[in-house]
Write a protein that binds this DNA or RNA. Structure first.
Lengths: 326, 326
DNA sequence: CTAGGTGCAAATAATTTGCAGAGGC
DNA sequence: GCCTCTGCAAATTATTTGCACCTAG
């Protein structure tokens, strides 16, 4: 609950003055957890600061949206809702048409697909909206669901980022193990075995971190999924999976590994970068970095291998200096 | 352009009367291709039928939405748009914020993911909205894009349904061919070879149909993709792909085939069923049916195999009548 | 002192509603 | 003739604007 407020002076548009009214609107707004309509916020502000006009609230919200502090969401009921953007990843909504509550989710797969679709249509995306309307569990069963505050959202996001990293790692471990089992060539097999060992080690690290995160809040694990993922976890190795044959030699094994690690690194880097500063973002970027280290190792190994291959068979210019590329 | 109108008498809510005014609103509405706002429609109707009130248009649209003839879409600019639902598959939108045009797309993958997400949250979906906002190609490059009318949409949908079926078939052919190459057991291999041959044959049929469709309109092939798919085409065989090993015998091969064909059948049947009557829907349902035929064949073969396996080793009750299950 | 911020009230803009009259069954 | 539909105008709702006044820099 003790979230740091963003640096407001930096966010303030050029040539604007500070104002106690605006500050109090902002203060009340940032205290809100869910979505507020402009009018809701007006009432809330009025309750503690008398003499504030409705127009000020509207104007402040416009300013906040422009500054990226607030996000405007449209649930289609004719009134705009606003939510604090700070430390909230950009997300999608499930909207209950009966109780008008809304819960949030994220799906890296949906995001990737939408990106691809926009690219295919030569469309420059500025924003993607995904909303699922229907009846929520609470309304259907009558069972109440505990509300989530901002700090919880943050932790759930971190939890899911870790889960995604772990699933990817596991998928990698699985892939390399399978690859090692299938590969007849001893050098190719040994490459895959080494990769599997590395993935296994990193998997352990991630799992420890996951347990540590859960230790902070025992209820965390049972909270509903916020970030859905499939493609990243399993899809990143699907391409490599298709290239597996018995006759994979060390060079091919390295190339397969390079392709997988590069895909994984790129994906997590790009994905992590979309978020505001948060634990979850950290998880993604660190994971991406880890994959980059693997990738570098593989690349070095691949280059060394090519070198070794070229030397014993000096077919062309045998005088070429070793260790120099192109 | 010669689209059949839906049976309006059937759609009319109980206890409602026919009315020339309403009919003329409806008639003008159904003639529209893109999205109209209530006010746009009001103007359009006024132009040819004098003395129609704005309220009537609003009321008629409400009624049409309730009857499923129209769909209401919210582009977030404060005014609702309406589009004819008839012979238009439920779709998603790309909205250009500069020229306020909108184009449509569909993604079986996004749809599946959203379904899964809703299910994970125990949420009963009534509607899913996906909107990508940004700048369209036309606005960025100045190059005009030819508009698409309803008949074209219908054909593009059919085209993409066929493409999806073809891609799936190709993916199946690829998978079974790979499986046959990898399988050492001669009986297992022969199963996969037979499956590959069947997929190849069906692929030919689909491709012929695709060519026939294109023959009707040479420009059809170059139109932008409407239906995006990945998972169905490649994902359906991913599971089976993982189970491939050298030592797959005939029984296991059959089981893998059964799993793949069943997944494919189910997916296409369910997906086809979501659409209004159209050529595209036909393609999906026929494809599903074809997969079901394959599935049945495999199942019969599997049962026969089990039978054969049980007979030569009469471990328990050897007196059991053959050809009787359970 | 002055540019911007503010409250209030009035303006807008999309849509709905009340009501008296018209029209289908 | 009854019951629903219709047009018009007035009402409602969410949001913006005009304007005289206020306040921070």
């Amino acid at each position: 609950m003790d979230r740091q407020l963003p640096d407001l002076s930096a966010l303030r548009p050029a040539g604007s003055k500070r104002s106690s009214k605006r500050d109090s609107v902002l203060e009340v707004f940032l205290r809100q957890e869910g979505h507020v309509s402009a009018d809701d916020l007006f009432d809330l502000v009025r309750r503690e600061t008398a003499g504030i006009g409705r127009a000020t609230v509207y104007r402040t919200l416009q300013w906040l949206v422009g500054a990226g502090v607030a996000r405007k969401v449209d649930f289609g009921d004719g009134r705009a809702r606003f939510e604090p953007a700070y430390r909230h990843p950009r997300h999608f909504h499930l909207i209950c048409t009966r109780c008008h509550s809304s819960s949030e989710f994220l799906s890296s797969d949906v995001e990737s697909l939408l990106e691809e679709i926009a690219a295919a249509r030569q469309f420059t995306t500025t924003q993607a909206t995904v909303q699922i309307s229907g009846i929520c569990e609470q309304c259907r069963t009558g069972r109440p669901t505990p509300p989530v505050d901002g700090a919880t959202t943050e932790m759930v996001f971190a939890r899911d980022a870790l889960r995604m990293a772990i699933a990817t790692e596991r998928s990698g471990l699985d892939f390399y193990t399978r690859a090692a089992g299938l590969t007849k060539d001893p050098r190719g097999r040994s490459i895959f075995q080494k990769l599997a060992a590395e993935e296994g080690e990193h998997l352990g690290t991630l799992e420890t971190r996951y347990r540590e995160l859960l230790a902070g809040d025992p209820a965390l694990e049972s909270r509903p999924t916020f970030l859905f993922f499939k493609g990243a976890a399993s899809g990143l190795f699907a391409e490599g999976s298709k290239q597996l044959r018995q006759g994979v030699n060390d060079q091919e094994a390295l190339l397969i590994g390079i392709k997988c690690e590069r895909g994984s690194h790129k994906f997590f880097k790009k994905y992590g970068e979309r978020f505001e500063d948060s634990e979850g973002k950290q998880v993604f970027l660190e994971f991406a970095e880890e994959e980059r280290v693997h990738l570098d190792l593989l690349m070095r190994e691949y280059r060394a291998l090519r070198q070794r291959q070229t030397k014993p068979s000096p077919r062309g210019r045998a005088a070429r200096r070793p260790r120099t590329r192109s």
